[in-house]
């Protein structure tokens, strides 16, 4: 049984990553990340030039600009950042979230569950969907940080320049940002991977209720946009970030990321998506 599951998960992961949707979405995400890198490297070069011309004496303000406010997760003013972070819920679902709907439609599910079990099939489907969604977001982020790091020094941020480093006291992992920024960035990469994976599994869960491929793929995107819009109603009432589109970004965009809120939303998304997939999947008759 264990061997069958390992084999099944290998097949699912291979299908999830080696398909044209994954490659196309990864390319699009990478283009957004490269746009951001290009823009930020260019603006850093402009700053360097300005620094040479105007600051012959006094504080050169070297810590003002560093890798940690120039990579796509640290800057919030380039077109690349805008496209990448707004479209994360859409990019995450495109590679493989639709697969269960198609496999159920063409009868592939039947041939798999007769050779393994429903539990194994749905668990491997959930893992593969999660991984594909996470990777399609994680890889461009890593590519961006590596490219930017080739041009912009990784100087440890300082609280002396709060305008340039929007990570305040009480914000998620803020202590790490000013002491071990590399670990902070790594944690954010993991957070982005996890949430992108969860967005992808939202589509999988939705496919148990809706029989329209386009709706299955777009519902999580609209859900996250509506959640983002609901921030409007909490203005001047609640000062922590509730929108994943903002808290997946390592520096604050409007409100600060609260660990409790991030954990609560993450757990809620996981319980709902995993619960629906495993409970309905195992319970539902495939024949």
């Amino acid at each position: 049984m264990h061997k069958t599951f390992v084999h099944l998960i290998k097949i699912e992961l291979k299908k999830a990553i080696k398909n044209k949707f994954f490659v196309t979405t990864l390319m699009v995400g990478s283009i957004f990340a490269l746009f951001s890198a290009w823009y930020m490297i260019d603006s850093y070069a402009a700053f360097e030039h300005q620094n040479k011309v105007y600051t012959n004496n006094g504080n050169p303000m070297i810590q003002q600009f560093s890798l940690f406010n120039h990579w796509i997760g640290g800057e919030a003013f380039s077109l690349g950042y805008t496209l990448f972070f707004t479209l994360i819920p859409l990019m995450a679902v495109l590679p493989y979230s639709w697969s269960y709907f198609i496999e159920n439609k063409i009868g592939y599910v039947k041939s798999i569950v007769t050779r393994s079990s429903k539990f194994q099939y749905y668990l491997s489907k959930y893992i593969a969907t999660f991984v594909s969604g996470g990777l399609v977001v994680l890889i461009p982020l890593i590519a961006n940080i590596l490219i930017v790091a080739c041009f912009v020094p990784a100087i440890t941020p300082t609280k002396l320049y709060p305008l340039y480093y929007a990570v305040d006291h009480g914000s998620l992992w803020s202590g790490l940002f000013y002491t071990h920024p590399i670990i902070y960035v790594l944690l954010y990469l993991i957070l982005d991977f996890v949430f992108a994976g969860l967005f992808a599994t939202m589509s999988l869960a939705v496919s148990f209720f809706i029989k329209n491929r386009i709706a299955i793929i777009l519902i999580p995107f609209f859900f996250i946009l509506i959640l983002h819009y609901s921030r409007t109603f909490l203005a001047y009432i609640y000062y922590n970030e509730i929108s994943p589109l903002h808290y997946l970004h390592s520096t604050a965009i409007e409100n600060y990321a609260n660990g409790g809120m991030v954990l609560t939303q993450g757990l809620l998304f996981f319980i709902l998506t995993f619960g629906i997939t495993m409970k309905l999947g195992v319970k539902r008759e495939v024949f």
């Binding site: 919030a76 003013f77 305008l163 386009i214 609209f222 946009l225 983002h228 409007t232 965009i253 409007e254």
Partner: peptide, 27 residues
């Protein structure tokens, strides 16, 4: 106007309106 001290905020209400219409005619 892009600036390191002024983050870009997406016009989500405007975006949702147009995207929803685009979604409804897509299929």
């Amino acid at each position: 106007v892009p600036s390191m001290t002024d983050e870009f905020l997406i016009p989500v209400k405007w975006l949702l309106l147009h995207l929803f219409i685009l979604y409804s005619t897509l299929y």
